[in-house]
């Protein structure tokens, strides 16, 4: 534990209800920080914006914790609030669909294990419209079912399934196009 974290060893005061449920803010923060930050990062593709958003989500949790009855409720609440804040952030910022060609490279530095294909996929995910992009993130990162995503995003499960199907088709198509153009480039380069 870092010295700064040791200063917070004493839990912040919470309501009696949260205390009864064994929900202690700093513990929940450490347990869920990767989940909240990753949803925001995968969706926004901007490390600093993702960190700001994740911080606001946890501060809201600190304010709301007394109304949450169990650990499962906290997890659901965190996913829900993070998703909605992400969607709101994108709505406020710019038109939601970005043509793939104009789509910027991820601002977050690519992890070392990221190959070319993963980087391209990351870019292709970023070009999806907001709602389908969030559905893809929740399905593949959080491994949520269509029904769970529907509850999180407050939309019909059929809509979630249809978004997911279309997003996968779109991603496959984009990835194929990218791979083919890359192979063509390589073969042109190799023949010269």
């Amino acid at each position: 534990m870092t010295p700064a974290l040791a200063n917070f060893a004493k839990p912040l005061p919470l309501s009696a209800a949260a205390d009864r449920a064994g929900l202690e803010f700093s513990g929940l923060l450490r347990q869920h920080q990767a989940m909240v930050f990753s949803i925001a990062l995968r969706f926004l593709r901007d490390r600093s914006a993702a960190e700001d958003l994740a911080q606001e989500v946890f501060l809201q949790l600190h304010h709301t914790l007394d109304s949450l009855a169990s650990a499962e409720h906290v997890t659901f609440w965190l996913r829900r609030v993070t998703s909605h804040r992400c969607l709101d952030a994108v709505r406020r910022k710019r038109p939601e669909t970005v043509p793939l060609e104009d789509s910027p490279e991820p601002a977050a530095p690519a992890r070392e294990r990221d190959g070319m294909l993963e980087a391209r996929l990351w870019q292709a995910i970023g070009s999806l419209p907001a709602a389908p992009r969030m559905i893809v993130v929740l399905h593949y990162q959080e491994e949520l079912t269509a029904e769970e995503i529907a509850q999180t995003l407050t939309m019909p499960a059929a809509t979630v399934r249809s978004h997911l199907r279309r997003s996968l088709l779109l991603l496959r198509e984009k990835l194929t196009r990218m791979t083919e153009s890359k192979l063509k480039q390589e073969s042109t380069g190799g023949s010269q």
Binding site: L5, S26, A34, E118, L121, Y140, L168
Partner: peptide, 29 residues
């Protein structure tokens, strides 16, 4: 073949930046 696996790998959870928890706790306090 690889899209599904690739999506799972690309969209894995990533650790929050170092010091994130401390910053949030300080701000909450």
């Amino acid at each position: 073949i690889s899209l599904d696996a690739l999506l799972r790998r690309t969209l894995q959870r990533e650790d929050a930046p170092a010091g994130f928890a401390e910053r949030v706790l300080a701000e909450a306090t």
